[in-house]
Simulated assay, not measured.
Amino acid sequence: MTTLQLKNIVKRFKTQTVLDNLSLDVGDSERLVLFGPSGAGKTVLLRLIAGVVDPDEGSVLIGGEDMADVDAEYRGVGMAFQNFALFPHMTAFQNIASPLEAKRSSSRAIKEGVDKVARLLKIDHVLLHHPKALSNGQKQRTALARALAGSPPLLLLDDPLRNVDAKLRFEMRLELPRLLAAQGATVVYVTQDYKEAMALGDRIAVMSQGRIRQIGTPEEIYNTPADMEIARLFGDPVVNLLDVTPLASSGGIHVELSNVKVTLPDFSEEVVGRSCVLGLRPETVAFTNAATPGAIPVTVAAETPLNEKTVALVLTARGREILLSRPAGTPGPTSGDAHIAVNGRSAFLFDKESGLLIRPRAKIMSRSGEAA
């Protein structure tokens, strides 16, 4: 069983703290994605797990064993580096085969292992080429193939699809989870692409400034972002964020858009009068008929078709911008006056000062387990 535990990790370079008291548990055969902007500390954390660099404070445990005195080559870790780190004097085949040769596998097992992973990553036609003859995308896939070929119990993948073209990147998002699941490895995967994080991770750890700001399943991160910044990072088009002050009436807690009440049924009176930010995912806002109860009058300012969806920009009566997203081919107004519908149950509410999510009150459950 291969688990990974990071306990109170601190890493400094001169006066800069790159990892700040970071703790993390990764379960056996789990795929954990480290997601965050450049400079968040993701790559440093991978190198620290691999044993390339040492922590200034804290401990790394692999399979329950403290790695403090264990050199990198004895940690049972496979890693695909962001900068490829291929052996320039070896062919792609030899690079991929190196972990199998280190395990003293037979010539037949080496050839079968290399051919299998090379076919999957679509580099079987360049196996006899040296790195200098490969494109960046081919180099990156060769480095990934080398990490996979040895079937290590712990895999560290540092943005391995960054230089891959869009079509292959999409295909790999589908194929990689199957391959990793078949290998049964525990995986820590770094990416700055939120779609990749959503597709590949059993859980996602969102990093910023050397700390983990939120960790959860892709659904939890998307549907319950811990703060406004995380809400912005996940979604295309980006989440709508509107300054609001919740009010109370006989109909419950509500905010107003174009002087129309939008009820927030899951929130209590503690948010009334508080400076907040309303978060609306573009796909949860829809055009509607003017006669629909709660219809909000807007002006359609622009519309952009984006292959599988159409994005519209509308303005409220106060000139506030709201993005709507609907499936391509779905009819909708392209300009002028229109009306939109907003489901208050799908809205986020953030504290304006701290940016933190205000969690709705828990639903009262009936004995059958359904919301009462």
Rank of each mutant, 00 (worst) to 15 (best):
S151G: 02
M67H: 03
G344R: 00
S98P: 01
L46E: 04
C276I: 00
E196C: 04
A317T: 07
V239G: 04
K261A: 14
T334H: 12
T15C: 02
L315F: 01
M228E: 11
L180W: 14
F234R: 06
R119C: 09
R345C: 11
L306S: 14
K167H: 12
G41I: 01
Y194N: 15
P333A: 11
K103G: 00
N83E: 13
D56G: 06
R47Y: 07
H130V: 01
E308S: 14
R326Q: 14
S38F: 05
A286N: 06
V272R: 14
T91Q: 03
H129L: 10
L155P: 14
L45W: 09
G27R: 15
P177Y: 00
R47N: 14
T330N: 04
E270Q: 14
P282M: 05
Q5G: 12
S208I: 06
G329D: 02
K167V: 12
L313M: 12
R211M: 11
L313W: 05
N8Q: 13
P55F: 10
A72Q: 09
A92Y: 00
I340T: 01
P265Q: 03
I296T: 08
T191M: 05
G216M: 09
T191R: 00
G201V: 01
I110F: 05
V272I: 15
N240C: 05
A181G: 06
R359A: 12
I230S: 11
S59A: 15
D227A: 06
E219P: 02
V300D: 10
I340W: 04
P327V: 09
K132P: 00
A109M: 08
A248N: 11
Q140I: 08
L168S: 08
T284F: 01
K352C: 03
R47E: 10
E269L: 06
A338Y: 07
L19E: 09
N136A: 13
R320A: 15
L323F: 12
A231W: 05
M90R: 13
S107P: 02
A199V: 08
N163R: 01
G369I: 08
S29Q: 14
Q138E: 15
K42G: 07
T43Q: 03
V117N: 07
T43D: 01
R75W: 10
G36W: 01
I62N: 07
D337S: 14
T191D: 11
S151N: 14
